[in-house]
Amino acid sequence: MATANKDQSTKRVLKRAVPDGLWIKCPGCKATVYRKEAENLQNVCPKCQYHFYVSARQRIAQVLDEGTFEEWDDHLCPTDPLKFADKKRYADRLVDEQQRTGLTDASLTGSGMIRARRVAIGVTDSAFIMGSMGSVVGEKLTRLVERATRHALPLIIVSGSGGGARMHEGILSLMQMAKVSAALSRYHEAGGLYISVLTNPTMGGVAASFASLGDLVFAEPRALIGFAGPRTIKATIKLELPEGFQTSEFLLEHGYIDRIVERGRLKNEIARAIDYCGK
């Protein structure tokens, strides 16, 4: 069902990286930027280095050696176990999101080469229901970690999720946090190297599970990263939030991130870390 419309909309998703049109407005510096120029810089603002959204497929293309990606478990599709409906039925929402993004759910997993080193890689796409983790994201990532364990592969997971655990699958989504974390715990015991890359945004249940469990945690500059949403915190403490709160730089300062890595350098940084850890 979900795969039927996959091919036709893959093309559309590539465009979604930055808003359609020749010119785009940068949320970082408010400057008007020539779209092509930003795209040539892997969707980074040429003026202020603001990192725009990139889709999971684009990310894989940016990080892996060309043509080496072998996708795993693309036959797993989401369903609607709770028969959940808010203003829209979850079942309908899934179809719409699949058509809009060309993805079956919010993650892509597989293996490929980074500067000729074989790795297992997973990416969550913040365009699909806020990149939230439901049963499919949890299952695909768990399978990814288990395979990386079996084949002794370094593991890279690039997170982009403003949604955390997906509400529409209720408690089943919450349990995916425990499931992936348990798999990572076994991977760790087996001596595997896990590099977690945090991108804008990484929040809630995703931040509170696999995204925070890397042996090395990298983050793109100025990404929003945290547990509770800024609005929730503001409503709780009834005070203004400090400047730069919950950004990559804030987390680096407080000791939760190893390195802030600009997008253009990500591939080399990963390759170098793998070399240091002897994998």
Binding site: M177, S181, G204, A207, A208, S209, F210, A211, S212, L213, I225, G226, F227, A228, G229, T232, I233, T236, I237, L239, L241, P242, F245, Q246, F250, H254, G255, Y256
Partner: peptide
């Protein structure tokens, strides 16, 4: 959900 909790790694401790 608070500033101190985020500063001291709420997400990281739950994961760990």
């Amino acid at each position: 959900p608070g500033v101190g909790a985020e500063e001291r790694g709420q997400a990281q401790v739950i994961a760990e």
